[in-house]
Design a protein around this nucleic acid. Sequence first.
DNA 1: TATGAATGAGCCTTCATTCAT
DNA 2: GATGAATGAAGGCTCATTCAT
Lengths: 203, 203, 203, 203
Amino acid sequence: MSKTQAVSVDSVAPLGPISPAKARILAVAVDLFHEKGYERTTVRDIAERTGILSGSLFHHFKSKQEILYTAMAMTTQAMGQSAEAAVTGVDDPVAQLKALILMELNSIHREDGHAAYVLVDEWRSLDPEHAAAVLKLRDGSYERCWMAALEGCADKGILKNNPRIARQLLRGALAWTRTWFRADGALTLPGLADEVCGTFLKS
Amino acid sequence: MSKTQAVSVDSVAPLGPISPAKARILAVAVDLFHEKGYERTTVRDIAERTGILSGSLFHHFKSKQEILYTAMAMTTQAMGQSAEAAVTGVDDPVAQLKALILMELNSIHREDGHAAYVLVDEWRSLDPEHAAAVLKLRDGSYERCWMAALEGCADKGILKNNPRIARQLLRGALAWTRTWFRADGALTLPGLADEVCGTFLKS
Amino acid sequence: MSKTQAVSVDSVAPLGPISPAKARILAVAVDLFHEKGYERTTVRDIAERTGILSGSLFHHFKSKQEILYTAMAMTTQAMGQSAEAAVTGVDDPVAQLKALILMELNSIHREDGHAAYVLVDEWRSLDPEHAAAVLKLRDGSYERCWMAALEGCADKGILKNNPRIARQLLRGALAWTRTWFRADGALTLPGLADEVCGTFLKS
Amino acid sequence: MSKTQAVSVDSVAPLGPISPAKARILAVAVDLFHEKGYERTTVRDIAERTGILSGSLFHHFKSKQEILYTAMAMTTQAMGQSAEAAVTGVDDPVAQLKALILMELNSIHREDGHAAYVLVDEWRSLDPEHAAAVLKLRDGSYERCWMAALEGCADKGILKNNPRIARQLLRGALAWTRTWFRADGALTLPGLADEVCGTFLKS
DNA sequence: TATGAATGAGCCTTCATTCAT
DNA sequence: GATGAATGAAGGCTCATTCAT
């Protein structure tokens, strides 16, 4: 996917250090993007909820777009690290897969932030250059973990689909849980993870 | 979901007759929404590509929002009819499920319009009242077909998941294909439909 | 006043014959202008309440402005005739004055139309040329009657003010009654007319 | 009048502090409303004459309507204060009445602003809620002064009419002077005030 | 005469961004 | 770093008027 992009990534500034002020702005922005969407969230909304004035935002980010990009890039990095952590020291590909599914579900449904939502829902609001930069981050780490686990399962002959296709079907199915899943007595996040894992593996 | 909505649907005008002019505007709008998203599409964009002036749009639709609503409602109705057609005369629940999966994939990937994309991607741009009206349309027909097929499979003991969960996982997985699936020699739409169907059924 | 206007009246078409259709449109327009004001009344409002479509209005009047002008000019003419009728055969200037005051009050407060309101309230919405034409109509007949009565009173030494000033004070006082006077047991229109007349004459 | 209004005043923001920028905008707006009327004055007109761009207006006022409301409310307050000042320390009700008449005429005909014109002429352009708020301001102070003076005259038996009616007739007569009175050698504002006062009192 | 789609200028308002203080 | 007034380009929508049918 990213290989077919003709867009240069060089013009996108790398993720600099995140000061506490920046972090607060990002947290607010992510919540707001989740509530109303990027386009309908104004820079004033973000400033107001952060407790500063709109002009001050631009001392921290040079544009609204950069806020979105930073949020997505950070989330991507964080999820990459979570993925690495989830599979580190786990040899069994089935266990790896189960861990990754649970990790992705946790990212989506965690209560203290909506960064993973934004990563899916606001993709189209990201400029092509920024999108390419985020994709590059994602493919480097997060997706590598997934493909390793899936290919491990395939090698053992227990994956129902081709690993590439399985990955895409899984991604869609998991991302969509944000619209319907609510933890309750009957179904917990780990329970859902097990169920999804079982679906994609031969029983 | 729709049951917990406090929003009244009564204020939303029912879908009136679609004149040729309206149909042309809708087709253009759907393409544009797909290309750039609802928010970034201006009424002037729509008018220009339709070949009329922006003021003329408002003879046919009383607001930009109504264009979105009409497009979504029409697509929902059309998909409901396609779903009914797909299962009519088919008794075997597995065959029904296969037909519905293929039908949904066809809706998403048809070349002459992007209405199904819009139905998924622009959901958040729809006012609560309009959203409730569309949901009502969808639950009445389209989702009923799906649940009948899935429950049929479950009754025969060959569905891997609870029907409700299966439906949601399937919906996410299928909708997401819009971002990665491109028909080529190796994988056709019916081939993908078979593969997805097989994933969710015990082999 | 009209003498100092440099505006030519020639460009304003004289009042042609008023067909029944025109009359109905005018009646509706006057009511609407009274309810919402000229600017806030749309040509579609007028058409709708008349029971025709907006395009059809322009077969009867060549512009919205012409509707206003026609309504004002007709009202002016009608009030001129009422004034002539009120003083015809009356010799005593005090009786004339009383009759004119009552006539003006009746015009303002009649129940079957709001033409006199419009004449006062929408003056500023009238183009200078049309305004000059209406003024000319008014000065020719209506105001002549008033001045004759007031000068008659002055000649008898019973008018408190200079006739020109008295006329202006009276006009303002009477026009303003539209905002506060409501007929009830205590105060009728003839009663008010008597009271006003008494105010401006030495007792 | 205001008692029969069902409109709540609570939703109307109280008059905040008037910054110099706001004051300049208001002065310009009032002049423009006087020249062309509220409806025909565009926010671009106001901005241009103020020397700013149209977008900047909305830093100071949240809508065009709020500009009108603020102008009217300020004028109402100012006239209330003028009225209090005019009668303070004056015991004789005739002198009070004379002072109030002159004060009202001065407000209407002052050369440095047309606020009092706007107060009368653009009443109908004011939203019902804002109108109720202005009425409340007016009845609290301005009208109280008038009624006190008129009732004082009535108690002495020298007022020709019932005080309520006298007030309304006076208001109409004085407001209308804006259309015809021009100070010249023959008639000055104080001269006119005397004349009007004499009209309403028994000689 | 009536219709109603189309016109196109114009309106109020929003909003990301800049910059002097 | 923070402020908040100012910018100026759009944006959605309105509306008097025209005209082919």
